[in-house]
Design a protein around this nucleic acid. Structure first.
Lengths: 227, 227
DNA sequence: ACGCCCAGAATATGATCAAATTATACCAAG
DNA sequence: CTTGGTATAATTTGATCATATTCTGGGCGT
């Protein structure tokens, strides 16, 4: 075994360098999740090879994964684009989010200790700061991180995986919501979630998440019907 | 021998030839779904290029889609293999199947007319013939087709898409179930579903599907604990 | 308006490089 | 002398790129 220091500067997983197609996937995924791509926007392979400075094979693989995730859609002929949600889509996503995210919250609440709850509270404070500053990308990022950390505590990777897939579908639409309402008017129910966790009431936490989902998705539906 | 269907003999969409990566994806997907691949089995890119007679780029894209589906898993290093389910995985899949498939059945039952119910009954009869003949692949195929046709009637593509993803996860394990129990002992609750549909009782149909899911998943869990 | 032609983009292959697993040889200990 | 382990060599496999081919879509001419 070689114990000599490696010139690898990966902060998260030292010694392991993710392949290019993995990096391209993560980059595009974040751009979609945090509203840097608009619904209906076309995505071309050659455009991404130039923008990201990699070959086309990694780009192709990333696009395949994202289409399988529902984050991108085939446009019949061989074009892909960011999906535009219909009312029916949103209504199905609401059902999925309510059932799966409440279940995840229930499981997480039964497992979280004080340190984990404190971590979650810290994430929510960052979210509040982003809202106060009117930072749209910061809002979307920290809102996602809040939910993702909560669901990670449930120790249910299969469920969490599907929820992530669902989030990828309405990510681009969230950006449109912020553009219409602004970050100031985006009240959430995270405080209720935290209070329920601190008082050891899993059912109350799950119900608060359901309210959070309903309120957020209602805004998406409002923006869609406005077109 | 080329394992991929010829483009000229495409039965579904005449005149349109799907690209190679799409055909590779469908081929592998069916092999996983219908038990032609064993849990834990390694999947190599170069092996598939030779077996399917195509280049490596289409194979890579198909593998990326399948890993995103959860039908294949990264093995830490850059190898992929057919996943081996844990008890926790199965338990999460049970929750997902019960909530999503009962919802889909509910929606389908409210929409289906007599012709659609007759089609479903015909699919169930084919399933019975496969069981009588001891045809394992025929059983798995027709069982999938029964559920897939039912859920398709719900006109809820987002929900149906996620259910498909869930099925891909336990597909390989179903083959093991058949190997242990044989097709003769695989009672299902399809007749109850059909009766509920014919008598116009959506709730009863959904409850019958829940029983079908519970019974099938119980067998998977039994096989897993036997190891 | 209809059909043909051309530019551009996507598909697919093979070649090349890098990483990992397997095989082999060598050394040491019992 | 055999056996266990480790280090090294060889083969297999994965990752990436550059290139050739095919197809879609728009523009031009009739």
């Amino acid at each position: 075994m070689n114990l000599i220091a490696k010139p690898d500067t990966d902060p998260e997983n030292p010694g392991v360098k993710p392949p290019a197609h993995e990096q391209v996937y993560r980059t595009l995924r974040e751009q979609i999740l945090f509203g840097e791509m608009a619904p209906g926007q076309a995505v071309t392979i050659q455009g991404l090879t130039q923008a990201l400075g990699v070959g086309m094979t990694p780009v192709r693989e990333a696009i395949r994964r994202l289409t399988s995730d529902g984050a991108l859609v085939f446009q019949g002929n061989r074009r892909v684009s960011v999906p535009q949600l219909t009312i029916s889509d949103v209504e199905q996503l609401v059902y999925l989010r309510k059932t799966m995210e409440s279940e995840l919250t229930l499981r997480a609440a039964k497992r979280m200790d004080d340190a984990a709850i404190a971590n979650l509270e810290q994430l929510d404070q960052r979210l509040d700061r982003a809202i106060s500053a009117g930072d749209v990308v910061g809002y979307l990022t920290n809102n996602y991180l809040f939910h993702a950390y909560l669901y990670e505590q449930a120790q249910a990777p299969v469920l969490a995986d599907l929820v992530n897939r669902v989030w990828l579908r309405f990510g681009p639409s969230l950006r449109v919501v912020c553009g219409r309402f602004g970050t100031q008017n985006l009240a959430d129910h995270h405080k209720e979630v935290l209070e329920a966790l601190q008082s050891g009431n899993p059912d109350a936490a799950a119900q608060a998440i359901v309210r959070d989902v309903e309120q957020g998705m209602q805004q998406v539906k409002t923006v869609l019907t406005a077109d």
